[in-house]
Design a protein around this nucleic acid. Structure first.
Lengths: 220, 220
DNA sequence: GTCTCCCTCCACCTTTGGGTTGAGGCGGTA
DNA sequence: TACCGCCTCAACCCAAAGGTGGAGGGAGAC
């Protein structure tokens, strides 16, 4: 791709826009084709300027970066969005990515890295700043890893038949349906389920379903 | 930290080990304190050599990189593991990260980037190669997005009270408990729940719990 | 052989859940 | 005004779930 990459900047702070303009404008492979100071403006601007890459602030008046990203994705624009944020403490990372963002940068990222990020994103890569990466990993691996681990251990404490019954309960089946599926009498289902209640410390089949669900996510 | 970072290499291919040794040995801030050609060896070697960072291949005889990583994590070693792989098509990324790896690199990564990665990891960052990042994002965003979206839509179709009841059901509460928590009669709980069954196309409170759970993951 | 664990099932009972009908109050809207 | 949707509750019923005790058979451990 020898063609220049079309970039747009969306931020409510004029100073930030100016800074980014300077940083990105210095690179001959990039050309800034539009700017906007809030989400509404951005939607219009992007429709007419058709940039390849958009640098988008999260916190903005009128329509924030998340909603704007979502709107762009919904409307089917082929724009690669890099979300900018001041703090990485935000719980917004996953939300932004889910809404279609392909990059996530902290504002204090060095100029050369920002330029690099834009180029990479234009080339089809996804780019995350290190702390964001760590967050993402935490999201995938953990969430509540202890809880999953606990669920797995609990299920392992069951006998084979008990576990089968528990899993069937997790699928929302009634005792009669379970008895048919596992080729056992309803009485037997009840017996197993009684043991399951004790072992999983549940009083209720919904609670059994919860444990089964938690354990399911742990694809060891 | 002016101290040199202790690095270990685990790979069954002697050529790869030699290559990495050359690449990493060239950097004065790193010192290679051990090597192993399979997982078993690695466990012993790491115990005695106590490296800060381990570069670990996934595909190895005897004990693969995944299991080795898992074993190290379980045994409580304070080692930061970077997983190496030839192809990024692997479904192993998430598994590796879940088992305690903090980095994931393709073997064709440039030498300078590998060195950089080791230093970053030693400094506490998490590092992923671009395509892996994309995969990770896909994992977080996707998974079963349609299912989640469906769940969210279904819950939005409920009235406020119905939704509150549904969520309470998802927590495994009985009708009596729900009536106490939401300050309404048990009869009212039943009424709402009846509507919930219809709207969520459920016949059974476990199925309601499933929908609620699916929707919970979608933090819109 | 004996002990233990698991799987299987029975009978009996109480509680909860799920389905139905009906009804009063309240707020918004045509 | 009348209408409509939502929240509230009641009485009733039957089916399902949950709890208790017991019992027989098979497989492995000692």
């Amino acid at each position: 791709m020898g063609v220049t990459t079309r970039v747009a900047i969306v931020d409510d702070d004029a100073l930030v826009r100016a800074g980014l303009r300077m940083i990105l404008g210095g690179d001959p492979s990039l050309s800034i084709v539009g700017e906007a100071s809030d989400g509404r403006e951005a939607l219009d601007m992007i429709a007419t300027a058709s940039p390849h890459v958009v640098l988008m602030d999260i916190r903005m008046p009128v329509l924030d970066g998340l909603e704007t990203t979502k709107a762009l994705t919904r409307r089917g624009d082929h724009v690669r969005i890099i979300v900018l944020t001041t703090f990485d403490t935000d719980e917004l990372v996953v939300t932004a990515l889910r809404h279609g963002a392909v990059g996530f940068l902290l504002k204090d990222t060095s100029p050369s890295n920002i330029v690099d990020a834009v180029r990479r994103v234009a080339a089809g890569e996804s780019i995350l700043s290190p702390s964001v990466t760590a967050q993402l990993i935490a999201k995938v691996t953990g969430g509540s890893d202890a809880q999953r681990e606990r669920a797995v251990v609990l299920l392992e404490g069951l006998t084979d038949r008990e576990r089968e019954v528990a899993i069937a309960v997790g699928r929302g089946l009634s005792n009669t349906e379970i008895s048919a599926e596992l080729f056992m009498g309803v009485a037997t289902v009840k017996t197993h389920l009684g043991h399951v209640f004790v072992k999983l410390d549940a009083t209720n089949r919904v609670q059994v379903a919860r444990v089964v669900h938690d354990a399911e996510l742990a694809s060891d």
